[in-house]
């Protein structure tokens, strides 16, 4: 493997999340879905957030999108605080700049509207000055970006294959000329053959339009192919942050190693490079009463005394490689 990406420190930070917390009050108690996380997103990069379900990936994305407001902490987009503004209160230019592609295109597209209607609505709202012909022109341009043709314009989502539907969802997100695109498990409901089409398209669009992606997924093979940096989340905490190359060659946190060792590989060479040290076991505990100390301690094969007593902090172990684990941090 070669290093595909060098971290450019001078790069402009486009999104800054600081001590973000999002709690939900339920009958059983407070669910601490996201609990004090901080990270930066640089312009033009793809930041992947990986973790099991229940680790707070989607909640983080929803706070950035404005579907939830933050309980505590803040989200800065181009140095404007947006974490406390709900979606309806956000100015239209902001909504234009942060867009999202959802997991399942079968449910995120209206089955009774044609592809034209779906994409045109976004253009009508965000560019009301365009007339009918200009809108059509823009739509064709968008379909061209994602590799669809005008033949698709008058089809219903039901007439399209899974991969094409997701491309339509992508075209709709691009209709507003966003700078930050949140991809919420964009390929997990698709077939293998359709997955690669979406991923190649995403890479091309990023190259051409200098988009920034936040990719949320639990499929590490996808992450390896398109992302530059990875945040590994577990039970509302970030446990490891590093470049993709670092994560796949020198994963330090036991949880990251567990995730890597559970990828089903398709060749002998692949299984050789993945760590074997940690056997996957157990399930994510409830976020209402997370284990004390390190949250991963209940599933960690290397847990020692201190792990259940004190919460590890996210510390820089190697340049740009942050880990929250007592076993790793004490060696620093």
């Amino acid at each position: 493997m070669k290093e595909p990406y060098e971290m450019k420190r001078c790069d402009k930070t486009i999104l800054k999340v600081e001590h973000l917390k999002k709690y939900f009050n339920t009958q059983k108690g407070t669910v601490r879905a996201v609990d004090d996380i901080s990270f930066n997103v640089f312009k033009g990069e793809t930041l992947a957030i990986v973790g099991e379900s229940g680790s707070g990936k989607t909640t983080t994305a929803n706070v950035i999108l404005g579907r939830y407001t933050a309980t505590e902490g803040s989200v800065f987009y181009k140095s404007i605080e947006i974490g406390s503004i709900s979606l309806t209160m956000r100015p239209i230019w902001l909504r234009r700049e942060i867009q999202v592609v959802f997991q399942d295109p079968a449910t995120s597209l209206n089955p009774k509207k044609t592809v034209k209607d779906i994409i045109e609505t976004a253009i009508k709202i965000h560019y009301p000055q365009l007339n009918k012909y200009e809108r059509i022109e823009k739509m064709l341009e968008l379909l061209g970006y994602v590799g669809l043709t005008e033949d698709h314009l008058f089809k219903l989502p039901g007439e399209l294959g899974g991969g094409e539907r997701q491309l339509v969802a992508l075209a709709r997100a691009l209709a507003t000329n966003p700078t930050l695109l949140i991809l919420d498990e964009p390929t997990s409901s698709l077939d293998v053959s359709a997955q690669s089409r979406i991923l190649v398209t995403l890479l091309n669009i990023q190259k051409n339009k200098d988009l920034t992606y936040i990719l949320i997924t639990h499929d590490l093979a996808v992450v390896k192919n398109i992302s530059h940096r990875i945040n590994v989340m577990y039970l509302g905490k970030i446990v490891e942050t590093a470049t993709t190359y670092e994560i796949f060659t020198k994963a330090l946190h036991p949880y990251t190693q567990m995730l890597l060792s559970s990828i089903p590989t398709i060749s002998e060479e692949e299984s050789k490079i993945l760590p074997k040290r940690v056997e996957p076991r157990g399930e994510v505990p409830s976020a209402i009463n997370p284990p004390s100390g390190c949250r991963f301690s209940s599933r960690c094969p290397f847990a020692i005394d201190i792990c259940t007593k004190r919460e590890p902090l996210l510390e820089e172990v190697i340049t740009d490689h942050f880990v929250a684990c007592h076993l790793v941090n004490k060696n620093v």
């Binding site: 293998v192 997955q195 690669s196 991923l199 190649v200 890479l203 093979a221 996808v222 390896k224 990828i263």
Partner: peptide, 18 residues
């Protein structure tokens, strides 16, 4: 084609598509 298009860990994405 199925094997070529599957996202892999070691190789970059192939532009071959079904």
């Amino acid at each position: 084609l199925l094997f070529k298009t599957a996202p892999k860990i070691l190789e970059p994405l192939s532009s071959v598509e079904l």
